[in-house]
Design a binder for these strands. Sequence first.
DNA 1: ACATATTATACGACAAATCGTATAAAATTG
DNA 2: CAATTTTATACGATTTGTCGTATAATATGT
Lengths: 81, 81
Amino acid sequence: MSATIRNNRELGEAVRRTRLKLDMRQVDLARKASVRQALISELENGVTSAKLDTVIKVLAALEMDLSVIPRRKAEFDPTEY
Amino acid sequence: MSATIRNNRELGEAVRRTRLKLDMRQVDLARKASVRQALISELENGVTSAKLDTVIKVLAALEMDLSVIPRRKAEFDPTEY
DNA sequence: ACATATTATACGACAAATCGTATAAAATTG
DNA sequence: CAATTTTATACGATTTGTCGTATAATATGT
């Protein structure tokens, strides 16, 4: 699976979804990525715009990669309305 | 085309490559993304770990998206050695 | 309902990104 | 080569991310 990321909220959703799929708690992910549990919470809730370094560390701990791709039209997202 | 991003340098390379392909100067990209020309320079040279917000803004100005994908093995990169 | 586990929030301290602006350095063009 | 354009670097000021730590709030399980 893959997900396009256009804002902090979308990154948060992807992180949480993947973490839960891996049956991890925030503290597990935090330890694996060498950050605080509080940071994972903030990230998942999109209350911060993390540094690229941090995003990459967290995704790596989830066995995920960041990728740059040609832009595609946004899917319709009912929660935006 | 697409590129996996595992550090600031790789992001910088992708940005510069795409910008040149679009025949833009740093100042053009900067204006379109509402950042300083100096920031584009720093970004492209990987001398900073930009915030996710900033990365997304710059990529959007290049008609590119950020995406989260399942991890793939790293390609062999001779410049790493 | 209660105990426990998990997540969210708070605080000050410190580090780092971004800004505006200016200029140095390098590349391009004529 | 000289003039011009483009990119890289510098500076202080401001904003923001991250830390450690603690605790509040919420969810889970018995």
